[in-house]
């Protein structure tokens, strides 16, 4: 499944309006913000159609995924946006993650739990809020807001950098750090970042990780950063996205793709966006001196001009 979908769900009293553009969207936030009401309205509309009195406006079918037959439903569905409410414990299972992988559907999951089996983006974790009454002052207007829109406590001049990457991304920031007296450590994967930053002392630490898949870690990393005060979180889509968006690799097509990646990547092929950006960078550099490999950093990326391009595209971190 590709693309961005605008969804409107409304009855006489409530109107929900939001857009989704990735295979996995998570809704959490305060109690009594209308999450379960949204699910109930979608369920009634699915079961009774227009005779429910509920309008669901979307270019893709919107369905509820719940109950013991969820696997059977997914096996026989494509091009559908599925919504699940928080009573469905199956969303935290490996079986569900496997079903989402390679699936031609989008998923909107209502839960406060961190779904460690699923690679969702920090950008796609939302809460719901009422943004006022709609036109006739009778209908309440519900919209989504990004829970972690303000997590960047930048700018920062870090004394230490922690990367999620173990290979190219780590090698790049290690080399930049060595030149500027900044230590750099690889966490060896996103699930190790929390324990690593928990053990840090008073030095300012900047964590650099792939925003496209850091969603499950975000709760504890954000709370840890808030508590400690010396932890700074920088989550671009991925290291490869940083290179692509820096302008180092020329091409109008790259800019077009980066402006709306959702129109170019298929959820069946890419479980999360950072894998798409890696494939894109490998493809666009394969015949050049900047030939990219995730496993080992091409030293050309450390040449002064190239490095400068990449570093200048990083907003909020001062390396020297």
């Amino acid at each position: 499944m590709k693309g961005k979908y605008k969804i409107t769900v409304k009855n006489n009293r409530l109107q929900y309006e939001f857009e989704i553009k990735r295979n996995i969207t998570v809704i959490r936030g305060d109690s009594a913000t209308g999450k379960t009401t949204l699910i109930n309205m979608l369920r009634q509309a699915e079961n009774l159609g227009s005779s429910s009195g509920i309008d669901v406006i979307c270019s893709a079918p919107c369905r509820i995924l719940e109950g013991a037959s969820w696997q059977l439903i997914l096996e026989n569905s494509s091009g559908t946006i599925f919504f699940t409410d928080e009573e469905n414990a199956f969303i935290n299972t490996k079986e569900f993650a496997e079903a989402v992988r390679n699936s031609d559907n989008y998923y909107v999951l209502i839960t406060r739990e961190s779904l460690y089996n699923l690679p969702y983006s920090v950008e796609e974790i939302y809460g719901l809020h009422c943004s006022g009454k709609y036109h006739d002052t009778k209908r309440a207007y519900q919209q989504m807001y990004q829970i972690y829109s303000g997590y960047h406590e930048l700018p920062v001049m870090p004394e230490k950098i922690v990367t999620e990457d173990t290979n190219s991304g780590f090698e790049f920031f290690k080399a930049v750090g060595e030149e500027n007296g900044i230590s750099c450590e690889s966490a060896g994967g996103k699930s190790n970042i929390f324990r690593l930053i928990e053990q840090t002392g008073k030095e300012s630490v900047c964590v650099i990780a792939d925003g496209a898949a850091i969603g499950p870690e975000m709760d504890r990393l954000y709370q840890c950063a808030l508590s400690k005060g010396n932890i700074y979180l920088y989550f671009p889509e991925s290291f490869e996205w940083l290179i692509l968006s820096s302008g180092l690799i020329q091409g109008k097509e790259i800019r077009t793709i980066l402006a709306h990646p959702e129109n170019f990547l298929d959820s069946r092929e890419y479980f999360s966006w950072e894998r798409f950006f890696t494939a894109l960078l490998v493809e666009y550099t394969k015949d050049s001196h900047l030939r990219y490999s995730k496993a080992k950093l091409n030293q050309a990326y450390l040449h002064e001009r190239n490095r400068k391009f990449i570093l200048e595209s990083i907003q909020g971190i001062t390396f020297q």
Partner: peptide
Amino acid sequence: EISGGVKTLILMAFDSSGRIFNASVCGDNC
């Protein structure tokens, strides 16, 4: 039709079955 968060709070306060409730259905406002 009251919120799942408040339902869970009421159970915590008044249910005497001895059951333990999953408070992750409660938002921070609970």
